[in-house]
Simulated scan of single mutants.
Amino acid sequence: IIIPMALIIAEMGSHQGSNVWKTVKKTALSLIKNPVLVGLLIGICLAVSGIKIPAPLFKAIDMLAEAAGPAALIVIGGALFGLQVKGMASAVGQIVIGKLLIHPLLIFIAFYFVPGIDPLYMAGALLFAAAPMISIYPLFGQRYGLGGVSAAAMLVATIASFFTLSLIIGLMSLFGLMHFE
């Protein structure tokens, strides 16, 4: 749900300046062609329909899936190589603070006000919210002209998450969210 919503917002932002209907049309056309959304849609259709993929095709898809992570890291490394970080600190700082501190805080507040939530679900949601962004983040940033900033933010967030995750796990333990029966 999050990735398609983020793509919709990014596409709409990239088509600013047009009238509303032109923006909606351009956004819809861009999203229909987006391989991430096409892949998600095909996966959902296969899961819902119960259609089984033939073994050779499944093996090929599985091999591509296993190569996606390392390929994404190569792209991220390429984006970071030779990157001029001057003037980027403010944007990177805002992204990292938002992802590692504000996002978990908002998730905690949202879960706190929902009665009867199992502490296991709250702990899982907080840990996912406190984790750094996934490796596809800089790839999306690159598509919208923010590859360098997003790659740098991911690098800083990954390093800083050692400290913020430790803090959040400590706080969760202190307040009894890490004790499961």
Rank of each mutant, 00 (worst) to 15 (best):
I109C: 06
V38R: 08
G69Q: 05
I9D: 14
L139V: 07
N34E: 13
F108E: 02
P115K: 14
L57Y: 11
I32A: 15
V38Y: 11
I117K: 10
I97K: 05
G43L: 07
M122F: 01
M88T: 14
F180M: 12
G176M: 07
K33G: 10
K86G: 13
Y144I: 02
L83Y: 08
P35L: 05
L64D: 02
I42K: 03
V85H: 02
V92W: 00
F163N: 07
M122Q: 12
E66A: 03
F162I: 09
D62Y: 04
I117M: 15
L120M: 07
V48F: 14
G141V: 00
I61V: 10
L80E: 01
G145N: 01
K33M: 11
A67W: 00
I32C: 11
S135E: 09
M172T: 03
M172Y: 10
M63P: 00
F113P: 00
V36H: 09
G116W: 05
V85W: 06
L177R: 00
I109K: 01
K59L: 13
Y112N: 09
V156Q: 02
A125Q: 10
F180K: 00
A153V: 03
M12Q: 03
Q16C: 02
I95A: 13
H15E: 08
W21H: 10
G148L: 01
M63D: 14
A65Y: 10
F180N: 03
P119K: 15
L105G: 06
F163Y: 06
V96Q: 03
L174P: 00
Q94K: 02
S173M: 04
F140I: 15
V75G: 06
C45V: 15
L7Q: 12
P4Q: 10
A6F: 14
I169R: 00
K33Q: 14
I42M: 12
S150Y: 15
I168T: 02
S135T: 12
L29G: 02
P4N: 13
V85R: 07
A79N: 08
S150W: 11
L146S: 12
I2E: 13
I109P: 00
A10Y: 03
G145D: 01
S18L: 03
G13R: 06
G147H: 01
A130L: 06
I102D: 01
L167A: 15
S161M: 04
P104R: 01
P115V: 05
I2L: 15
G39K: 09
S161P: 10
F81S: 13
A130H: 04
I107H: 07
S49E: 02
P4V: 09
G147N: 00
L37I: 15
A123F: 00
M5K: 07
S150V: 10
I102Q: 01
A6K: 11
S173D: 12
S173T: 07
